[in-house]
């Protein structure tokens, strides 16, 4: 089993088929194409997205539906093409998985980026950071805490 060096978790064993491929990279990190989702019982429901190329690069994420139970996706044609999906409705947790990147703001508040969620086609493991205008890039997590799963 291949191993991956990470800042947060030390050296991790991982299954190559679980790696997410971002054909377009993500904004500001266009050269980062491969991330490993790390989910551990001790850190549930957080999902860490660990770069395969850069041990120091890790994003803290939460399932978008935990952050906002009414969250709906309206994916642009170019994102559908990157994901290899048809234009049919994209039901979160059924057709696609959807993660919101969490930021610790300088004042300590936790916010989730619902404007630009990470959308994953679970069948192909292809992923994009899609834009969903109308949602906030800094959606507050209540009391700086995170919702229960």
């Amino acid at each position: 089993m291949p191993q991956l060096e990470t800042r947060q978790f030390g050296v991790l064993d991982y299954q190559p088929e679980t790696v997410l491929e971002f054909p377009a990279g993500i904004p500001a990190f266009e050269h980062e194409r491969r991330f490993l989702p790390v989910e551990q019982a001790a850190t549930s429901p957080f999902v860490f997205l660990q770069s395969l190329a850069t041990p120091e690069l890790m994003f803290l994420t939460l399932p978008a539906l935990l952050v906002e139970p009414g969250y709906r996706l309206d994916l642009a044609q170019e994102d559908l093409e990157l994901l290899g999906l048809s234009a049919a409705p994209q039901r979160i947790d059924q057709d696609v998985h959807c993660l919101a990147i969490v930021t610790v703001q300088p004042d300590g508040r936790l916010t989730a980026n619902l404007l630009a969620p990470v959308v994953i086609n679970p069948k192909t493991r292809q992923a994009v950071q899609a834009l969903q205008p109308g949602y906030s890039p800094q959606h507050p997590l209540p009391d700086g805490e995170v919702p229960c799963s």
């Binding site: 800042r7 993500i26 904004p27 500001a28 990190f29 120091e56 690069l57 890790m58 994003f59 803290l60 990147i101 969490v102 930021t103 610790v104 703001q105 980026n113 404007l115 630009a116 950071q129 834009l131 205008p133 890039p137 800094q138």
Partner: peptide, 18 residues
């Protein structure tokens, strides 16, 4: 698209090592 700029800066903030 303007949202790309917002996504860029938010990604940079989120990537700051905790």
């Amino acid at each position: 698209r303007k949202e790309i700029l917002i996504a860029r800066s938010e990604n940079q903030a989120a990537a700051r090592a905790l």
